[in-house]
Design a protein around this nucleic acid. Structure first.
Lengths: 202, 202
DNA sequence: AAGATACGGAACGGTTCCGTATCGTTAGCG
DNA sequence: CGCTAACGATACGGAACCGTTCCGTATCTT
């Protein structure tokens, strides 16, 4: 974690203040390098410093090591989940499902796959990942509960499983390109409608 | 790729033949190290050799480098997909969905997440991944088609999207632990039933 | 027995990276 | 102006790893 917090009420230490531009450049360079195909392991502090136009010492002044910098940089990718309009349940679900694996920062789509192995190894990273997606899950949970209240959805719905049914197809397709012949266009609508109506004949 | 193929009809070259035990030990050591938490990048030829009780030269005699060895080792993880019983569509789907992310080799479950970033970077790895899962997709496709023929499933079914709806939830939960509070026990049944019946009230 | 080849082990040079230290320089504060 | 700390740049020792090349030994074929 960087030490940029609690700088407001500090007694303004003497000397040259830390460059805000360097802060930004370091994090941006990290995300750029990750998005360009470097994995978390192969990325190096030296490459980040070179890309940011910064000395290595400037990085070590702010973060204790590579892992802390990476965790801090990944945290920046957390965008705000979209706000469903609140008209029909179907429309709201389409909005939320469309946003799965689709963050504000376009680099996130390329970086996210690198996170998958980390999530399974480091409890901290798992916690970070959960803290990013839980707000989106909460939003979807709320829409489903509303659907039950309004009578649009079955009252005996298993909400948590339903969220996985809506999120899973989008995630494996966007992160893993699970099915080469499945085009992303219109996929959210098709998934939402499929989950809504079911596949059993009647 | 190893050169163990086409050794049958070779004119039996003189000298000491390659040790089959070394072949096996190297691949096993590679998979063990991956399953123990080493990622594809952090794993080293030296570690593999040490674990296999083998000299590095013995590895380089067989594979040109680390990537070739890893690709070859990962190929071994491809198990055979399960055979659905063919009784009811629901039972068959439960069998297939239960097998998602659940290979014969127990190490596969731990190794698979490491494959995710590779799949997005190397076309070869993507091809390998597809060749592993396509037979399972084909099996599920066949069950869905049979369900349409027998009238158990809607005739206007989007088969490819339905497969994603069945596979996605299992995959994100088993590979990513997407939802901490979602227990794996009974999840296949709940997913299959959810997709079968839909969530819309009626 | 003789020849050929693979074996495990060890070493080597080259590369990369980390984390630290040390330059001379620069920006803000009193 | 003078103080102070951060700045970019560079160099360093240590470590890890790669790919290669030697050993002396083991094992198979002829």
């Amino acid at each position: 974690m960087s030490d940029m917090t609690s700088a407001a009420d500090a007694p303004r230490s003497p000397g040259r203040p830390r460059s805000v531009r360097a802060d930004e450049a370091i994090v941006e360079a990290t995300l750029d390098l990750l998005a360009e195909g470097n994995s978390v392991e192969t990325i190096s502090i030296e490459a980040i410093a070179a890309r940011a136009g910064v000395g290595k010492a400037t990085i070590y002044r702010r973060w204790p090591g590579k892992d802390a910098l990476l965790t801090d940089a990944l945290r920046r990718l957390k965008g705000n989940p979209p706000a469903p309009a609140g008209r029909s349940i179907r429309d709201d679900l389409v909005v939320l499902v469309s946003a799965v694996g689709h963050h504000i920062d376009p680099r996130a789509a390329r970086i996210m796959p690198c996170l998958v192995p980390r999530v399974n190894r480091s409890p901290d990273e798992y916690q970070l990942y959960q803290s990013i997606i839980e707000p989106r899950r909460a939003l979807m949970r709320e829409v489903l509960r509303r659907g039950i209240r309004t009578g649009e959805l079955r009252p005996d719905l298993d909400i948590e499983v339903t969220m996985a049914m809506l999120t899973g197809p989008m995630l494996i397709q966007r992160v893993l390109r699970w099915h080469p012949d499945l085009d992303d266009a219109g996929l959210p609508e098709r998934v939402v409608d499929g989950v809504l109506e079911g596949i059993r004949a009647r």
